[in-house]
């Protein structure tokens, strides 16, 4: 489960916003799910510390909150970086070697699949088909698309993003 070593980067204001929402909605039936959605909206992800806040406030065991958070794929338990990299592992890109690109990025950034660098600069995910198979293998950094990757250009691309 351990993918990054980033400490939770939450602010007092974020925590207060979550507590205010919980206070307002504590009576809502099945409140755990919307609470997690709200928390993700506030923090960008739902790490252990945030799930614990929800569990404590609702007087529910952490296992229950964690069960919901891991059931739905919409929840990120890992933080996302300032710059989000998605590498396409769809059929066309995969055949053209995108898996090697993905491996290279994991090595360069020192993170696993779905992880985030300790400085919060990059997070890395795999995705399926970005709709430009003619440029395979393809990856995106934030809103920028990079195609026809060989692996040699990766350092130059990463250097553009701080």
């Amino acid at each position: 489960m351990k993918k990054t070593s980033v400490p939770i980067y939450g602010t007092k204001e974020q925590t207060q916003a979550l507590l205010d929402w919980l206070e307002e909605n504590r009576e809502m039936p099945g409140v755990a799910l919307p609470a997690l959605q709200k928390a993700q909206e506030i923090y960008g992800y739902v790490p252990r510390e945030v799930q614990q806040i929800i569990a404590d406030f609702l007087n529910k065991p952490l296992t229950e909150i964690y069960g919901v958070a891991t059931f739905y794929s919409q929840f990120n338990l890992e933080p996302k970086g300032r710059n989000r990299i998605s590498v396409c592992l769809g059929t066309a890109c995969y055949i053209k070697g995108s898996n090697r690109i993905y491996q290279l990025l994991q090595e360069k950034l020192g993170v696993e699949d779905g992880g985030c660098t300790a400085d919060g600069r990059f997070s890395l995910d795999a995705c399926r088909c970005l709709g430009c198979c003619g440029m395979a293998p393809v990856m995106m950094v934030n809103d920028d698309v990079y195609g026809n990757l060989t692996g040699e250009e990766l350092d130059a691309i990463l250097a553009k993003y701080q």
Binding site: P61, L62, T63, E64, Y66, G67, F71, Y72
Partner: peptide, 9 residues
């Protein structure tokens, strides 16, 4: 106690 529960999907 609830120290164990189900997770994932």
């Amino acid at each position: 106690v609830s120290c164990i529960g189900s997770s994932g999907r």
